[in-house]
Design a protein around this nucleic acid. Sequence first.
RNA 1: GGCUCCGUAGCUCAAUUGGCAGAGCAGUUGACUCUUAAUCAAUAGGUUGAAGGUUCGAGUCCUUCCGGAGUCACCA
Length: 532
Amino acid sequence: MLSAQNPVECPAGFLFVPQSRIVMVWEPNRLEVDRLERVQALEARNIEPFPARVQRTHTAAQAVAAYEAQEALGEAAAPVEVTVCGRIRRVNLKGKVSFMHIEDETARVQLFLRVNELGDATYDLVKDKLIDSDDFVQASGTMMRTQAGEISVRASSLTLLAKSLSPLPVIKRQELEDGSVVEYGEFTDVEARYRQRYADLAVNQNVRAVFQKRAKVMQALRQFFDARGFLEVETPILQPVYGGAAARPFITHHNQLDQDLYLRISFELYLKRLLVGGFDAVYEIGRDFRNEGVSFKHNTEFTMLEFYKAYIDYQDVMELTEQFVSHTAQQVNGTMQTTWRGHAIDFTPPWKRITMRDAIREETGIDYMDYRKRDALETVMRERGITVKPGQPWGKLVEHLLGESVEPKLIQPTIIMDYPRDISPFAKRVAYDDLHVERFEFYIAGMEMGNAFTELNDPRDQEARFLEMATTFRQGDDDETPLDEDYLRAMRYGMPPNGGFGMGIDRLVMLLTDQDSIRDVLLYPHLRAEQK
RNA sequence: GGCUCCGUAGCUCAAUUGGCAGAGCAGUUGACUCUUAAUCAAUAGGUUGAAGGUUCGAGUCCUUCCGGAGUCACCA
């Protein structure tokens, strides 16, 4: 409610409150004007359009199930009395008898409205459309089947619960004999759907299903890690020093403390400090923020899963990864197979494992170990027609080579292991040379899904890596990794050997729900400000 | 950020070579006591994303801006 002083009503329907940020710009269209007039008509009949109290006894699904149970018992069973609530999704006025479909989260159920049973006063509300499509209502009555066979509530009372002032897009549904549903009318404009997700959800059942499935993914993940003794923790989103990934951060400011802070780009360094503190296994599911471009697989903020476990290495993490991903698929979809963008994908372990060197060699014929200086590698890459940004370190070139030539072909789950050291400041060196570390990433459907290491726990080497990063990347580079003095202090107390892992959950949800874009698995994807 | 495409009624879409902005659904009025994409009759609805320009005439051509999508760059 507006409480500011001296609001000004402008001619076009604008409301502007001087010295404030309150500007209401709603200009009702003619459909909305109709509904506003009906609110007044309701109030003229002393009917509250937004009452506070509700008496629901059954969800729509429970009401239908109760009637089916009654039918199964035969004639002897007592009639089923219900009070159901929901949004009106279809109205069919037929003179002195009418039908409505109301919908709650569980189901749709039909209301059978007859003037004899409802009474003139209530029936007139329906007939005059004072109770109309998109409104929330409560109906009480006995469950029945119509002559056409549809289970319905024979309403003896009907109460408005909340008036809808703006009509939703109309989508008509036809249930075919085989049980499938055909929809007529659409709400498909992607910008409108993202900006007004509430309307999208209200009319597009399949969109609701995506987010119900997303919640199941979260449940399955927590179930998996909880059952294996991992402690779920929460670490700071606002951080004085960011780190743990190669990404550009958002910067914000604490006024009272006069302190610049970064929104986290990963949880890594805070989680590993907890292993120093004595927790053997921790995980966190939360939001990361990266100040970078967006695409079908990148959103400005996204949901990350990271876990760290003491006394295991990256080989063990590979196994855990195969297990929790396949477990999640099984829990959510009841199968380890899925289809994404027409690709049949099978999460069943074990997955293909191959070193980065072998993967690149198999695909391109290039053995990058023949080119251990960055200039030499850059030259051979350019000869193959791969565009290379100048000034990249050797490891970046290797990674780029993988991304260009191998990554798009990794449709089935594949683990690529042993990454270049100079782009992996938190992973332990391999035993066999000084150019690689015990790190793997796994790929599905041509997308990078997750990243894991045998975590570096030698504070002397960690310090050297921070310094290496500082010389490899110029300050201000996107990949700059700031030295975290407190993290080194923690590590000096002693950190158990451990394996760690991180992945963007949104991409897994994309795969499991067959959605083409990350925006379709985020309720509120990041968009530019809407301008008026 | 570069390039390409898109923006028309509440929703989904038309509009010939630059020549009167249209349809379905929704809406409004009326009829109908078992409908279900209900049906029947009548009817209303537009600053074509915004601002400029070319032209006798612009939804259509040009410029700039806003927003979205795709793609590249960047990036997990």
